[in-house]
Amino acid sequence: MDLDTLYQEIILDHARAPHHCGLRVPFGAEVHHVNPTCGDEVTLRVRLGDGVVDDVSYAAEGCAISKASTSVMCDLLIGRPVDVAMRVSDEFMALMEGRGAVSADEDVLGDAVALSGVAKFPARVKCALLGWMAWKDATARVVAGESEQQ
């Protein structure tokens, strides 16, 4: 196995200095997700405004893959319309769960393409998805809260 396929330089860069980390206010919803097999955790907040992902902030404990994945995710999703962001996250999840058989669309996934190699390591897919699942959950909660208020 080629380690450099899994740990591409761009992933190590994100892992060493994750983008958008820290918990910020205000936020619409906060969630706490855990990877029960390894104990990795993320607390993640989402703020939406006018159908756009205004901010995603987080505090996480995790491996290089999970840190880089969450960092890349924030780069990709912050500032995007919620429906677009949802499509990006669905595409990323399909890539991760594709066992290496799904090819990545760099136009949609940007730096997240560098995580393609993770799909070949079933034990690490959950690491890459931790932040994304938290984002999806938090966003769904904000959307549900908004529709309740209306």
């Binding site: 196995m1 380690l3 390894c38 491996c63 893959i65 690490r124």
Partner: peptide
């Protein structure tokens, strides 16, 4: 992170547990 340690070790056949 221990997961990353175990992954690099596996790349040279050394099988340990992380978690």
């Amino acid at each position: 992170h221990p997961h990353d340690v175990a992954q690099v070790l596996d790349s040279v056949g050394v099988e340990i547990r992380a978690g």
